[in-house]
Design a protein around this nucleic acid. Structure first.
Lengths: 360, 360
DNA sequence: GTTGGCACTCTTATCTTCCGAGTGCTAATA
DNA sequence: TATTAGCACTCGGAAGATAAGAGTGCCAAC
């Protein structure tokens, strides 16, 4: 059964009103608000049909109507007016966002906080990086007991660590190790850093002091930490301002799920760039999210890193505003973090360079 | 008026029971539980006096008694049995802690999560570092468009950044800049990095490409980020499992305060090493904490860094267990992060070394 | 197809009633 | 003088009763 234009209008009115008030909405209210010139009795007939079709439901006889997940779905797909900010709002948001983005350390913690503040819902951010490799080793000799490991990574970042040794090493040894590591440990993934490789390197270097072990464990640490996706949740407390979470148990359940790092969405439905995905109530796979909704956007954080920002709230969520804000934020982040620095041409071809160190 | 031994026992019994049950405790329950051989009528007389003295109060006539802040204070100071874990508990805790500490990245986020998990209350961790300075600059030349900045800091750590330039520089320039930065920017604090200094360095280096600006802004970033105290709150949701926070508004208020980075304790009352401080209800200065309690321990994170771990809960908090656990955790952290690496002798005298780079 | 009218339903708020835990007091006891 | 048993009293919370109101469904009329 096709859904008539008027039904759509009425459904939209119900959803809008319910999002605003969190109370079941009655025929009279719709007759007054929505600009369709007909009486509440007519609306009632339509409402009854919408219930029969599964878009609405009543908490009990003689209560107003409330949208079902199916109702929200239709609303999100077709009905809601894609919120374009008015010029002033847009400028204001832009200004605020720019200001924040200035200070933003690009840590996902900041991103998630920002999203939460912007939308007033709990937010989760996470980044998934491609596995990185080390492109180049440098070992900087400081003094007989101290040197610095510097790794240049395939994601165009550098990582370093200061190492203090209980015993002395000479510069020769450091130099030799750098050469060996550049030869053996570059362009390989985490799982290629095997005990066998480490042992053989140690032997080649005549390293009896365990320096090889120190360096390779740093390598492992860097490789594994930058490949692991990191998630950060913030603003859980904002849940409590939503009437549907006045029940502390319900709130507690969801908040625990979120802080426990629960996934917001199944891996197969990651939104592409510039896309905002909405999962409504039972559309979520996680049991804990079955009566909440999730809005997710993704952004390009450069260096093969994609970031995800998601927001969780009751199914009665202001989808339009939230989606618009997330898209805005994601765009801003992509602009700021992504396009910025293109990897210089030809870099990859020149990378196998023996590491060296300072010769003061 | 001095407080008799028996009164103390009774008070302790009231607090213990109230901590367990969260319900006002009556004379009968005490007569049965506490091993003092007297009847409930006697207890009633004593209770009445304890109320008069301000250690207890009744929510209303004909209800049991509830400890006042003053009552808790006496309890914490004198009455509660300092919880020493039984051997099994201790070992278990130790094992769990060690396991966690292995994986612990010493980030305060981890510390706070750990504290929260351990105590089942929201926890906040924060570190206050002494201001760091740069001890040594190295600039690693990678290719004409790329170099790596490596800073060795006074807190015995190293920081690095990969810089891509839109235009080419030659190795000479990089070398010159390293020398200049080592001469001008080492051993100085954040506020000594003035625009004047930067401008004069830029002039000395004949740097028309803004490289000086890039390096010095990285220096500023590092100096300011590592001097700023960082706080991290986690486990806010655990509040909701406490019956006193079943009121969502109350819970919301406190949680917002916590996530907003609200201070847990006045700066003047930082606990010393190995000390656990307890602030009960109105003893807190922050309005939002007036009817909650805070337990705080501090640990030595090495490198002139002190860390603080605090836990927030209702005044009806299991002070004994929480204090013991926090002390345990703080000790473990001090051992692991603090004593570990003593700065090598004489390091500070040798530090002014001109930075150099690789000469492949 | 639309509308006004009306009886009906069901929830929510408010008010009563009732029960019992726990007290305070008094008088008896050790 | 300290302790105890006994008892009347208080008060909050639970359970039930009542009233009000919002909203529906349906019917007959337009």
């Amino acid at each position: 059964m096709a859904i008539s234009e008027r039904k759509k209008k009425i459904l939209a009115a119900v959803v809008d009103a319910y999002i605003r008030t969190a109370e079941p909405v009655g025929s009279k209210a719709i007759a007054e608000s929505a600009g369709l010139g007909c009486s509440s009795a007519t609306i009632r007939n339509e409402l009854a049909e919408l219930v029969a079709m599964g878009y609405l439901e009543q908490p009990h006889t003689s209560a107003g109507r409330v949208p079902t997940a199916m109702g929200y779905r239709l609303y999100v797909n077709e009905l809601m007016e894609k919120q374009r900010f008015t010029i002033e709002e847009g400028e204001d948001l832009n200004r605020r966002l720019n200001q924040r983005l200035q200070e933003l350390d690009d840590t996902i913690g900041d991103v998630s906080r920002l999203a939460s503040q912007l939308t007033n819902y709990p937010a989760m951010a996470l980044t998934t990086r491609e596995a990185v490799t080390v492109l180049r080793f440098d070992l900087i000799y400081v003094d007989a007991n101290t040197f610095i490991i510097v790794l240049m990574l395939s994601d165009h970042s550098a990582r370093s660590k200061l190492v203090h040794l209980p015993i002395s090493v000479d510069e020769k040894m450091i130099r030799k190790l750098a050469t060996l590591f550049n030869a053996n440990f570059t362009h390989i993934g985490e799982d290629a850093v095997t005990p066998v490789l480490i042992a053989s390197t140690e032997r080649s270097a005549d390293d009896t002091m365990g320096i090889t072990a120190v360096i390779s464990s740093f390598v492992l640490e860097v490789l594994s930490s930058s490949s692991a996706p990191v998630a950060f949740v913030s603003g859980e407390n904002r849940l409590l301002s939503q009437p549907e979470f006045r029940d502390p148990d319900k709130a507690h359940r969801l908040m625990s799920y979120l802080s426990g790092g629960g996934q917001l969405l199944p891996a197969e439905s990651l939104p592409g760039s510039n896309e905002v995905r909405v999962l409504i109530g039972p559309e979520n796979v996680a049991e804990e999210l079955k009566d909440s909704s999730v809005v997710i956007a993704s952004y390009d954080a450069g260096d093969n890193t994609r970031g995800l920002i998601g927001v969780v709230g009751p199914t009665r969520m202001d989808y339009s505003a939230v989606a618009a804000k997330l898209r805005f934020l994601a765009d801003g982040l992509s602009r700021r973090l992504g396009g910025g620095e293109a990897p210089p041409e030809g870099l990859h071809n020149k990378l196998i360079i023996k590491g060296d160190f300072n010769d003061e």
